[in-house]
Design a protein around this nucleic acid. Structure first.
Lengths: 233, 233
DNA sequence: CCGAGTCTTTACGGAATCTTTATGCACAAC
DNA sequence: GTTGTGCATAAAGATTCCGTAAAGACTCGG
């Protein structure tokens, strides 16, 4: 399963709240990351590309509103704001600055989780991912949203392993992917060394995707190393 | 269609609040529309296709949670929930049912407006296509407002689970929906892994909807992955 | 309390997929 | 020329997954 975890970045200076959120989020299966200041937070948003940001407005180094505005200049990642101040004016300012939600401390963790799910629901279902949803080479098209492959417009059926294998090669298009790497991604880490499976499945993929399977144009063998999906030129 | 104004639908039984919202919204340049019951509200969502819905949970004729869930079966239009109950449990339930935000009465109108702007900001930027309240494939028609299914004009009875299953497949039309995803949406998260339920119910749906259930044209199996409602081509 | 409708559970034949085995080819090393 | 290694391909065997029918359990209104 190549389903990576959902990554949450918590920008919060108070250690107890950070610890608390870390416990809750990790126990619910999220990938947790933290920053203790606005500066560090913005850097981590850029470097780690979290799926959602939980931001305390009362940071020591800079105004939380300013953090929100600056983030919104370049990223649409959902931001849930936490604040000790419950005045309506504060809420309106933060929401208009680009925050997606606003919770007043002390907040209930169940509500925070529910509101995080709301924010994530949007970004997940809307098809505007940073990864292109359709990949093409030759007359083959791979639609990752539909999980469907077509060749010359005609639908093509791939088995789960064939699909994962192809998806991995596309992920590293034009680069060589080693035998073990492919085995790990398509089968699982415990299959390292079973390079024979690869030969069988690469042959199947070629039969389905290549015009002349014996002289592949796209699914290239790199002897002794692995395979490569050739798309350039 | 050249819709200049943003249309807001308010579903609320208390006249004073309705009047108040009408004043505020029209003065801010929104197109205002209202419904006094859940039934009327759902009909107006289908007929008027508002850009955003403000929904009071405490309606006389039906549970607001149920309204939210039924709307979410076919439309992604933002829903902001108003409620007199401020318990965390109520908020979580409403948000997980599909609401985009939850305000406890008495609420500040500035905050409501700000939260409406947040919800609108998201849908306006992402190119969300219009959703229809009636979905068709082959000679089958599904009316999400009446909750009624017809085949070749003849009314067809589906059990609650059959209906939810079909509604979920329609929501992700042409996309592969995994076993667990279907189980979560139609049965609930605690049913993950009970894939044999799906086999039983997919067979029932095929018997009712397909001309030749043994060779389905629309309800397609994706072995080892899930199912897909095929409507294109 | 009963019965209709619905959900849950079970069983099994068959289909699809994964795994294993076998054979042949190309090429390099010796 | 022989040998060995890595690869391609086909096909058989093993396993998992799916479709179907039917029976048992549950729910709810009357």
């Amino acid at each position: 399963m190549s389903k990576s975890k959902i990554a949450v970045l918590v920008i919060e200076d108070e250690a107890p709240i950070r610890r608390f959120l870390k416990m809750t989020l990790t126990s619910q299966g999220y990938d947790f990351s933290e920053a203790v200041s606005g500066q560090e937070g913005m850097l981590k948003v850029a470097s780690e590309k979290p799926d959602i940001i939980i931001l305390d407005l009362g940071l020591p180094d800079m105004d939380g509103l300013e953090v929100t505005k600056q983030l919104r200049e370049w990223t649409p990642t959902p931001i849930i704001v936490l604040s000790a101040r419950g005045q309506e004016k504060d809420k309106v300012e933060a929401l208009d600055a680009g925050a997606d939600d606003y919770l007043t401390k002390p907040f209930g963790v169940a509500e925070l989780m529910a509101r995080a799910r709301v924010a994530l629901r949007r970004t997940m279902t809307s098809s505007n991912g940073e990864t292109q949803s359709v990949f093409k080479f030759g007359d083959v098209e791979v639609d990752f949203v539909k999980r469907q492959v077509t060749k010359a417009g005609k639908e093509l059926h791939l088995t789960p392993i064939e699909y994962k294998l192809l998806a991995t090669l596309i992920k590293y298009a034009d680069r060589v992917v080693t035998h073990n790497h492919l085995l790990r991604e398509a089968w699982g880490s415990e299959y390292s060394g079973e390079t024979h499976y690869l030969r069988v499945y690469m042959a199947q993929l070629r039969r389905k995707l290549e015009k002349n399977p014996a002289q592949p144009k796209y699914l290239i063998t790199e002897p002794g190393v692995g395979y490569r999906l050739k798309v350039s030129q």
